[in-house]
Design a protein around this nucleic acid. Sequence first.
DNA 1: GCAAAAGTGTTAAACTTACACCCATGC
DNA 2: GCATGGGTGTAAGTTTAACACTTTTGC
Lengths: 239, 239
Amino acid sequence: MKRYSLQTRLLFAVDCIIFGFDGQEMKLLLIQRGFEPCKGKWSLVGGFVQENESAEDAAARVLKNLTGLDGIYMEQLHTFSAPDRDSVERTVSVAFTALIDIQRYKEQLHEDFHPVWFSINRHPELIFDHKKMVDLAKEKLRYKAALHPLLLELLPDKFTIPQLQQLYESVYNTTFDKGNFSRKILSTKLLVKLADKDKLSSKKGAFYYKVDRKRYNVNFYAFLNFVPDTLLQRSAIVR
Amino acid sequence: MKRYSLQTRLLFAVDCIIFGFDGQEMKLLLIQRGFEPCKGKWSLVGGFVQENESAEDAAARVLKNLTGLDGIYMEQLHTFSAPDRDSVERTVSVAFTALIDIQRYKEQLHEDFHPVWFSINRHPELIFDHKKMVDLAKEKLRYKAALHPLLLELLPDKFTIPQLQQLYESVYNTTFDKGNFSRKILSTKLLVKLADKDKLSSKKGAFYYKVDRKRYNVNFYAFLNFVPDTLLQRSAIVR
DNA sequence: GCAAAAGTGTTAAACTTACACCCATGC
DNA sequence: GCATGGGTGTAAGTTTAACACTTTTGC
């Protein structure tokens, strides 16, 4: 039972699995550690939780430092607590998944940060249990994106349906019928058609769309309405 | 960035949201704290993580102590780390959801444990942020049970389709058409029909079924095949 | 004009839903 | 024999999936 005085106290950290999409494929943001141990090895972006912040606060702070961006999509993934996961000292780490619009991302100057985008399928070896974290994040992304529109977080403010399709195809490593894909996405009513077209990737050009943020927030959990939404309150389900 | 020596070290605990089903409605197992602070107040079952165990180990140990049972369905729910969540000393807690067959459960003797099953909808006030944990666990259970057959974990080895339907109806606080419910469950091929009937709740009697454990493990994530299962590898997705 | 990508139309198949109906049995 | 819950049948409505077809425009 709980007896406070006798208990061990541990280090408590956060690590962020940061996904981006460059228009072609999914990317993962990694840094080269600037200090020992494992200096020079590749690692997730992370840091220790400070005295007056929660793990969520710490992860947001780390992301803000790295990207200069606020309001990034972020959710708790899993907590890793194997006694030997950190070779220096026992450390528990809460892993977070973050989705960012790669075009809005600007690398901030920081002596310790040397972040690089890697393809999600070909990245260097990672320290500690960071590969486990990345693998789990990839699984959860695929799972969740099949049910909810969170991949929209990865696109710029203006995007086309074919670009969105390219993103889905990259996440699921498959192809979709463009007609059916477009109708399915549009049927969610989450997108607003804009007046102008992207003419870079075709002669005809594809209309730009933007996310209807209001509907997005309200309908996030109803997206592919797998269950009559009278049953699952759409407001607040599983972070 | 990470500099180990300067960091605060924190207490690290687990708390278990233990769900059971008594044939009528969903229950939640709570204990009355046997020590200060908040002695006598109701609380989730929990404990501190020891030096040589992970949070998962700790949660399994706590459950084993309480119920005498091994191999209980358990999954990480969320980590709670608000700086002021524990009034005594800053403590980070990993919450776990556990599903147990209430009939297999036997209260173990333990000076500190006074566990009681409460209706999931009418339970006493809880200490710290335990209500938040319970609410989140309920949401996630409803979410996940709509997609995967995990409610089977709550039933005894032998059960009838109407009993399973009662369980689903209790979780979603609704009613289902019995014909459609039975066909949908059976279409998963996760159940094996037994030779004998339960005659307690009807004159005709309802056939007993048991879980086909092999199919259950293989098809857990494919259950209500919301996405063509060629897309979501069914083997390992989201704990 | 033609190639290439965007987008629409169409249809068969599959699945869902509601509800009527039959079944087995204890009283 | 009839009330009760278990279980099957069935048809209308909806959704999905495959793919043919039309549109637009740069070259």
